[in-house]
């Protein structure tokens, strides 16, 4: 479904991605792990075409991302949760969630859109009283969950979650992990999730990819992760300060 080949990206003199190769099959849940600032978010943005890679090829369902004619139709297949939630602060929560349902090709009556928004909010553990608040009135963890509700509102085929559980309490994190799993299993969606939370990795992933030094350092099924003999991966999983990954102290 998603295929990255030799993707490079630099910001000025700073080389971030140095040849990322990654493929995610249809209906698969892939989790990307890796240190802070290694370019995980940049990788997702490259797939969405928000950032243009300097080199390399990205294909979604066989179609080159940089060459798609109808961008709106292309993007209509995606849902994206941004790391900072990226809610529109001029709109109330329900209009954020139902944004896609209020305009464009998926437009439907306001009342119906609001109903769907409230149902999606419930799935991320937020009550209907939140619907009419503005994003600025919510806590960070609540904003994150509204972002999640917005990402899944139009039932997309491909969903990207950038750190869905950071800032949530352990119980809520568990609820969200379960939700992501459900979306993949029940709806057959393809999911790519970025997370630093190893328990979340085990709960969500079919497949794990570790980004380090601008490349995919290790990738494989989640079951093989613990037995893998990659010192970088092992250090990351155990969270040890000692190992090949520099920590600059």
């Amino acid at each position: 479904m998603i295929e990255l080949k030799n993707v490079h990206k630099a910001f000025g003199a700073k080389q971030i991605l140095r040849g990322v190769d990654l493929s995610v099959a249809k209906g698969e849940s892939c989790v990307i792990i890796g240190g802070s600032g290694t370019g995980k978010s940049v990788t997702l943005k490259c797939i969405l075409g928000l950032i243009r890679p300097d080199q390399g090829q990205i294909k979604v369902a066989g179609e080159d991302v940089t060459a798609t004619g109808d961008r709106d139709a292309f993007l209509a297949r995606f849902g994206m949760l941004f790391q900072g939630a990226a809610l529109f602060d001029s709109l109330p929560v329900w209009q954020n969630v139902a944004f896609r349902l209020l305009r464009g090709s998926l437009k439907r009556p306001r009342a119906e859109a609001k109903e769907i928004a409230i149902a999606k909010l419930r799935r991320v553990g937020l009550g209907p009283d939140v619907a009419d608040l503005f994003p600025a009135e919510l806590s960070g963890g609540m904003q994150k969950r509204v972002g999640l509700a917005r990402a899944i509102a139009a039932d997309p085929e491909i969903i990207f979650f950038d750190e869905p559980t950071t800032g949530l309490d352990p119980i809520m994190a568990g609820v969200i992990n379960e939700l992501i799993r459900e979306i993949v299993v029940e709806m057959g969606a393809t999911a790519v999730t970025i997370t630093h939370d190893m328990s979340s990795v085990r709960a969500i992933a079919d497949k794990v990819a570790m980004l380090h030094g601008g490349k995919i350092r290790w990738h494989g099924p989640v079951a093989e992760m613990d037995a893998a003999h990659d010192p970088y991966l092992t250090q990351f999983i155990t969270g040890s300060p000692d190992g090949p990954i520099e920590t600059l102290r």
């Binding site: 969405l48 990226a86 529109f88």
Partner: peptide, 9 residues
Amino acid sequence: QIDALVTLS
């Protein structure tokens, strides 16, 4: 938020 707008077609 601009990126989010784009991803929402």
